[in-house]
Structures are given as C-alpha cells and as structure tokens.
C-alpha cells in the first residue's frame, strides 16, 4: 500500500555530525551557557556576556526556524515569541522578586497574544484574567506583605544554577528536536517520512492521527476555519466543559471548596496561635 523509503544505516550521519552541523544545537548550547551566566548566582560576573549569548541564540533560532506564513503574520509571531522568551529569561534572572513578578506578567501578556494569533480567543482572555489578573496580583500581595523590607541575600540566589540550566536545556533541546522535525517535515535519520500516516486507514484512530499530523505540518487553513475560527468556538468550548467534562468540573468545584475551607481554617488557626504567643509574651 505504501512504499516505505528508509535510508540505509551506513549512510546515516553520525550523531555528532548532526549535532555539530545543526544551528539549533548551537543555539541551545548558547542558551545553556547564557542561562547559567545570567541566573542570580553568588557573583554578578559575566551577566552581560550571558545576555549576549542569549541574544545570539535567539537570533540563530529566529533565522533558522522555518517560515510558516506571510511576512506580516510571521513578524507579529516572532515579536510575540521573542517577548515571551526574553520576559521568561528575565523572570528567573532578576534578583528583586517584585521585578520578577512584573516580568512574569509581561510573559503572560505575550502568551495571551500568541493564543490570540492562532485564534484561541477564550484561552487568550482567560490567560489575562486568571494569571495576570488573579494569580499575579496575589503573588505581588504576598511579596509585599511578607517581606516589605526585601528578601534576605541568600533568598535571592539561585543555588543550583548550573544544574537548573543543564536540566532546562536538555528539556528544551529535546522538545526542539522533536517539534522541529515534526514541523519542518524532514525525516529524522532512519525514519519514514511523516505525512504518510494520513494514508494509513485505521478504524478508530485515523482522523485523530490525521489531525495530529496536520498540526505537525502547520495547521491547514480549512481546519482552522472549521475549528477555532468558527463563530461558535467559545460556545462549543462551553458545551464541552458542561457536557463531556462535567464530572471534572464538579470535582474542580469540590477542590475549590476544600481550598476555601482550608484558607478559613488557616486564618482561624493562625489567629489563635498568634493570640497564644501574645499571651505568652504578655506573661513574660
């Protein structure tokens, strides 16, 4: 039914050849070095060099990422994506938790913009209201209430800077290689070409797999028209939420109840503990 062309194993490039010639690998390596340098370690040496590494890496990536659509859309996407990445880097690298929270807010705004760009209006608005509106404000409250005089020096340091940089880089590298190969359509060494999955007829999984492959190859316009760009999109979301995910909604409600009761219990309990301490201090 399907002719499967695989590259014979002896013509495969070695893994280090792949790594050395791939701009993505270089970019990710630079990201790791840059991340390690700009994380708040004990000393501030090399932070500017780290930032430079980050900028070069982003430039490399932006240069080599395959173009998916027209230049206008593409430039809007690039602008938003770079905003998000830079804001995330700043979130974990600035020393003042207040600034960190504000950078996090910028990252959220960028993410919401990305959602809007692919037509997911509901998710976009939800990101702004839930994260930026509720969670970020709570975080700011906590920061300001808990330590108005600022964090202690040791609290501002990243104690496992190298480890976190390496772990994060491995994860990002793996995801980049997987998603990069999926979107560029180039087969990995020894792999059958993607897209053929569309032709394999399977009684149950075919449409789902087809949609996965289409998503991997860049979303087809007609799919977007029928799916997330449809006028009924948000209504459909609501129907799913109260139809298929009804039980999950109810369980989430029970969770909220537990959280509410927990908050009250902690307030009551904490006040009593404080009162007891006050009495003890008064007795002294």
């Amino acid at each position: 039914m399907i002719a499967i062309a695989t590259i014979p194993p002896h013509e495969l490039p070695k893994w280090y050849e792949i790594v050395l010639t791939s701009p993505f690998a270089w970019a990710i390596g630079l990201v790791m070095v840059g991340l390690w340098l700009i994380l708040p370690r004990g000393n501030a040496r090399g932070r500017w060099f780290g930032a430079l590494c980050g900028i070069v890496a982003i430039g490399l990536l932006a240069w080599h990422v395959p173009r998916l659509c027209g230049w206008l859309d593409e430039s809007v996407f690039d602008g938003l994506a770079i905003t998000v990445v830079v804001a995330c880097g700043a979130t974990i690298s600035v020393r003042n938790p207040l600034y960190s929270a504000i950078w996090f807010g910028l990252a959220l705004v960028g993410t919401a913009g990305l959602f809007l760009l692919i037509g997911a209006q509901f998710l976009s608005v939800a990101t702004i209201t839930v994260y930026a509106g509720a969670i970020l404000v709570t975080v700011l409250f906590v920061i300001m209430l808990a330590q108005p005089e600022g964090h202690a020096y040791y609290d501002r340091l990243s104690w496992e800077a190298l480890l976190s940089a390496v772990t994060g880089t491995i994860l990002v590298g793996m995801m980049t290689s997987v998603i990069g190969h999926a979107t560029s359509g180039a087969p990995l060494p020894g792999e059958r070409t993607p897209g053929m999955a569309l032709e394999i007829i399977h009684p149950r999984g075919s449409d789902r797999l087809a949609s996965v492959s289409v998503a991997a190859a860049g979303i087809a316009e007609e799919d977007r028209e029928a799916g997330i760009l449809a006028e009924e999109h948000v209504a459909g979301f609501g129907r799913e939420l109260l139809g298929r995910y009804l039980i999950a909604m109810q369980v989430a409600g029970a969770l909220m109840l537990a959280a509410l009761v927990g908050a009250m219990a902690i307030v009551v309990h904490g006040r009593r503990t404080d009162g007891r301490q006050a009495i003890r201090i008064g007795n002294m």
Binding site: L188, P194, A197, I200, H202, L209, S213
Partner: peptide, 20 residues
C-alpha cells in the same frame, strides 16, 4: 482507553510527536 490505539498506529507510521 484510546491511547493504545493511537500509539499502535504511531509505531507503524508517522506521528513524530510520539517522541515526546
């Protein structure tokens, strides 16, 4: 319950995201 089927197809053909 649908995952084994999807994984079985991915094993036979494309589905690059399965590497995740």
């Amino acid at each position: 319950r649908e995952m084994p089927d999807v994984l079985a197809i991915s094993g036979a053909g494309g589905g690059t995201l399965i590497r995740l």
